[in-house]
Amino acid sequence: MQVSMTVNGRQRSDDVEPRLLLAHYLRDVVGLKATNIGCDTTSCGACTVIVDGLSVKSCTLLAAQAEGARVTTLEGLAGPDGELHPMQRAFREEHGLQCGFCTPGMVLAAIGVLADNPDPSDREVREGLEGNLCRCTGYHNIVRAVQSAARSGPAAGQVPQGPEAAR
């Protein structure tokens, strides 16, 4: 079946199997490999992307369910000149990632946390990230990164909207 959506600011239309998961669509059809798959049970959040402004687990969404939606993946966060999104910058500065596998989903979920609550406490960040598992960092520096991003201003809780984000 035909699905159409905007991925990182770029309009696409593809013929896919109805059962194709959004995560596989992004990875294998669009070719955006940052979105990772870490489980089968909507548990780990590695596949988190932003769909119409809200974080979702792309392993539990059919590509067909994103019909007409605006999808942002990790690849769509940095500016056209390579300028890092405030959340990307904070993860880097606070050493909020190690092996990097949870990172794309974690960064997008973290943006979602700030979209919901621009100044979260330690506990609120942890609760906001309850759907994203990380085995490396013990979450300590992730929490610091999210709080550091929050301090940098409201852009940390927003995803780029325009086609200039296309990469």
């Binding site: 940095a78 990097g100 596998f101 990172t103």
Partner: peptide, 21 residues
């Protein structure tokens, strides 16, 4: 020193075995 590997890990993602092109 902040990690040199992160610039890529945070923008395009790392390249794991299943990501290889």
């Amino acid at each position: 020193v902040v990690r040199t590997e992160d610039a890529l890990f945070l923008t395009r993602g790392a390249t794991y075995t299943d990501d290889l092109v």
